[in-house]
Design a binder for these strands. Structure first.
Length: 279
DNA sequence: CAAGAATCCTGTCAGC
DNA sequence: TGCTGACAGGATTCTT
């Protein structure tokens, strides 16, 4: 379920488990996800101390002493599992296992294999090819209505597609785009270039609020960001429109007075929205 | 050049 | 129960 809030929560879980710790053992079980793991990954990790973490868009950067950062992307189905180290079977689809000197095991699992792992010099993280083209962080103060309007100006794709474009604003995925557009009262089909002025003000505010609330829900629903089953960072969340086709939205009476939340397909992805309140 | 479609891969779930 | 097809939260690459 990894969009920005989930990635943020996973990162905080990794932080709690790994920051300041030395990696005693690193094992690569399968080295070909979306792209090949970098050569020497396990060797680079073994014996390294984890000095810190950073999130950029949906990417997690784990910084090691010695000047390298490990770049993680969870793709569609990536997860992190944590538990006590020791003898255990490697779970199906666990591609990378880390063991710390103080006895923790962290596994990167990705059945669908759309995720990726890479190494990048910490001093040049933002120059990495996967990060270089990203738009602003939506929760940064620098992400303003003026910045969003400028990025959308002249674009003739639907606003839904423009917000999924990580170069417009970084970290939103299908769910949070649907949610933010609903809250802002903007139709996902509206041409991106027409989102300006008051609409942009509203949209920026709702993007920030939607993400902030989801991150808070993620943190509060987990003790130290780890579930009892050892999974980091995923949590249940009540969406207002996502996955709610045919239900009444909170601003409408619902059927039969109003058709309720409808589902359409845009750029091959499901979009959920309310025809009555989103314009 | 921009926008949309196709694509990678596996798991899950609804329907028959 | 078993099979089949639709669908899935992403991002890149190929077509139009």
């Amino acid at each position: 379920m990894p969009e920005l809030p989930e990635v943020e929560t996973v990162m905080r879980g990794l932080q709690a488990a790994l920051e300041g710790r030395v990696i005693r053992r690193a094992a690569v079980h399968r080295a070909d996800l979306r792209r090949a793991f970098p050569p020497g990954l396990a060797a680079r990790l073994t014996g390294a101390r984890v000095t810190g973490f950073r999130r950029r868009a949906k990417y997690i950067l784990m910084r090691l002493d010695g000047g390298d950062s490990v770049l993680f992307h969870l793709g569609m189905s990536g997860r992190m599992l944590i538990g006590p180290a020791g003898v255990h079977d490697v779970p199906r689809h666990e591609h990378l296992t880390l063991e710390t000197e103080d006895g923790w095991w962290v596994g990167f699992i990705d059945p669908r294999r759309f995720g990726c792992i890479d190494l990048v010099a910490t001093a040049a993280e933002d120059a990495h090819g996967l990060l270089a083209g990203l738009g602003p962080e939506p929760l940064d103060a620098a992400f303003t209505p003026a910045v969003l309007s400028a990025a959308l100006a002249g674009r003739r794709s639907p606003i839904k597609a423009a917000l999924l474009d990580q170069g417009t604003v970084a970290g939103l995925g299908n769910i949070y785009v649907c949610e933010a557009l609903f809250r802002a009262g903007i139709s996902p089909r509206r041409l991106a270039g027409t989102v300006a002025g008051a609409r942009a003000v509203r949209l920026v505010a709702e993007i920030k609020a939607t993400l902030t609330e989801a991150i808070a829900a993620g943190g509060s629903s987990l003790r130290d960001y780890v579930r009892p089953d050892g999974e980091l960072g995923y949590f249940q969340h009540a969406w207002k429109v996502y996955g709610r086709e045919g239900e009444a939205c909170e601003r409408c009476p619902g059927p039969p007075a109003c058709p309720g939340v409808c589902r359409i397909v845009q750029s091959g992805r499901s979009t959920f929205y309310c025809r009555a309140t989103q314009r």
